[in-house]
Computed example of a mutant assay.
Amino acid sequence: MAISTKALIVSAVALLTLLVAAPMASAHSQVTGYSPADGSSLDASPATASVSFNEVPQSQFATLNVVGPDGNIWSKGDARVEGQSVVVDVGELGPIGEYTLAYRITSADGHPVSGTATFTLTQEGSGTPGAPADASGSSEESENSFLGGYGQIALIAVAVLAFAGALAFALRKPKNRK
């Protein structure tokens, strides 16, 4: 059975499309900024803390905590997604020292992204700390999201198989009816 030029062209275009699209689909969210800025020094508490990304993160798994030099959480309430940023309210801070913004989000592509940034409080505040920061501090749910890990590979494999089936159907020889 000879392979037609049309089949070769369609196959080449399909392969090229997969090679170009796969890296784009696996790109994770990238941090574009912090507020307060990473490494900055403040003499008063900020009203909010935020981490900004190059795309809108999924809201259901977004977390952001401000952890003080005493190991306690100083942010107030739950983090929320506002545009391309994850934001949390910050009450009056307490001890002088380094505070850590600890974040974890799920990218638009389903992969978890986490990290930290720091700022220093240079004048003691009169705030009351929250609970001690949890050492694990991560949401297992985001790692189990369907598009995370092997789920994305499975979707690509299904798409390739569907394309191959459609191509085979389109190129089949019609039955001769006599």
Rank of each mutant, 00 (worst) to 15 (best):
E141P: 08
V113A: 05
S45C: 10
A131M: 13
L121V: 08
S139C: 06
A62N: 03
L121N: 02
S138W: 03
M24F: 14
P36L: 04
P95D: 14
V20C: 09
F119V: 05
T118D: 12
G149Q: 09
A168F: 10
V88D: 00
P132M: 04
D43I: 04
R172D: 03
A168G: 07
A131Y: 03
L16G: 14
L42W: 01
V87I: 11
Y150H: 11
A62V: 01
A135G: 12
A14W: 00
T17S: 15
V67R: 03
S75H: 09
T122W: 08
L64R: 00
G68Y: 03
I73E: 11
N144Y: 08
N176K: 14
R104T: 11
V88Y: 00
V81A: 00
F119N: 00
L42H: 05
R172A: 12
G151T: 03
G91K: 01
P46T: 09
D38H: 11
S114W: 14
L161A: 15
A49I: 04
D78H: 08
T32E: 08
Q84D: 13
S59G: 12
G165I: 08
I96M: 09
G33F: 09
F53K: 02
A14F: 03
T48Q: 05
A157Y: 07
S85Y: 00
A102T: 04
E140G: 11
F119K: 01
G97Q: 07
S85T: 00
V160G: 12
L64Y: 00
L15W: 10
Q152G: 15
L93F: 10
A164Y: 05
K175G: 06
K173M: 08
E143K: 13
I73L: 07
L93D: 05
T122F: 10
A27K: 11
A117K: 08
W74G: 08
F53N: 02
S11F: 10
I156M: 06
P23Y: 06
S85L: 01
M24A: 06
S59I: 06
A49C: 09
D78V: 06
S35H: 14
V86M: 01
V31A: 07
V56W: 02
G130R: 04
G151P: 02
T106N: 14
S136I: 10
T122Q: 12
V66E: 07
Y103F: 07
E98M: 08
G149K: 10
A22T: 13
V87Y: 01
S40G: 06
K6N: 11
S29F: 05
A49W: 02
G91S: 06
Q152K: 11
V90R: 02
G115N: 12
E140V: 12
N54H: 05
F169H: 15
S142L: 11
A135M: 07
L101H: 03
H28D: 14
T17C: 15
V66K: 06
